[in-house]
Write a protein that binds this DNA or RNA. Structure first.
Lengths: 190, 190
DNA sequence: CACATTTTTGAATGATCACTCAAAAATTTG
DNA sequence: CAAATTTTTGAGTGATCATTCAAAAATGTG
């Protein structure tokens, strides 16, 4: 065959799902072979090695997340209006069965300094999310205010990702973020 | 030998350090053998298996953390006064080289539903931390207020643990938590 | 349609995984 | 101090790990 036969996006979809759920280390190549339907040789030809497939899975996830985020931001007048909806969606997501937290957050915490390059790769995608919030906040805030508010939003998102993974209490999460982010336009939620 | 020869607390210290830094899956028994100085047979006689050693390491870490937290809370008049110092210490910690985030948070996110028992074990220790904050907050707050504030504090702590692991900006973290926790007695910090 | 090129196949590789166990050593007990 | 009990030792276990590669199959090219 001179043309690629498999659907790369479907392969990345299933690889992402496996890595997301089990983590980088705990996902074996044999699991990936089973999940993607590809034979070992095909994976190694297309992605180099396990780390290569992991990186492309991270990118696949990050691109979808960023696109989804930009879509949400575009739907509202201001970021102060959009964020309550975005955060509510994260909280709703966290109460689903088989909730896996955030692939980027999980990967960030799993990687140690021995995998500095991979860790930086993840870190870069997380910074991209923060800069999206920062840019939006610059419209109605000074640079210092926008920076602090973006950091606060990121910490609350991380909070939801961790808190929501070990407890199942939407109400508790909502009360927490309403208290911590009082400058958002919560009144437009209903 | 009819008496245990090795110092259990020293063994748990080094095992905790390895699990904390590398994660449960990525820490091999051979690494643990090298780090603890014990031979495989001794580890298995004392702790049953890798999971048993991991659980005792989690408990070792959790007990130290809770004791340290209780010590900090006892030093101040109110929890509103104590928390700025506690959070500042977490931020300072996050800027150290070889910072490993929080062992409990990392473990919580690493474990999937396939390891439900271990996951619950971690979850229980995290809830213990939250209930400590909740109890302290009950002194000056209604039950509903104390509950929401405790959730907010936990989310900010999770935020510091994740944010501080991928970025190195004490200032950004401080600005973020001052903004999100305005009801704390920040003025007593200096 | 033949030949060059590229992809797929899947059994096999050596390394490393968690874990075992019989023998040796250390300690308690009588 | 001798016998009983318990711990330590460390080479060895089969299973699973990431990865390879020669042969087969599928396409592009002239």
């Amino acid at each position: 065959m001179a043309r690629v036969q498999f659907d790369k996006s479907k392969v990345l979809e299933s690889a992402t799902h496996a890595f997301w759920r089990l983590g980088y280390t705990a996902t074996s190549m044999q699991t990936l072979v089973a999940q993607t339907g590809l034979k070992p040789g095909s994976i190694y030809l297309a992605f180099g090695n396990k780390e290569g497939l992991f990186k492309e899975s991270l990118d696949y996830y990050a691109e979808q997340s960023l696109a989804n985020l930009e879509g949400m931001l575009a739907q509202y007048e201001s970021i102060e209006e959009a964020l309550p909806h975005i955060l509510l969606a994260l909280i709703e997501e966290s109460s689903q069965s088989e909730y896996c937290s955030c692939f980027l957050v999980k990967s960030q915490l799993e990687l140690s300094d021995e995998q500095a390059e991979l860790k930086q790769h993840v870190s870069q995608r997380l910074r991209k999310v923060e800069s999206l919030y920062f840019e939006g906040l610059l419209k109605n805030n000074s640079e210092a205010e926008a920076s602090a508010k973006a950091a606060s939003v990121m910490m609350h998102i991380f909070g939801i990702r961790v808190y929501g993974y070990h407890t199942n209490s939407k109400e508790q999460l909502m009360n927490g973020i309403r208290l911590g982010l009082p400058w958002l336009a919560w009144e437009t939620l209903h």
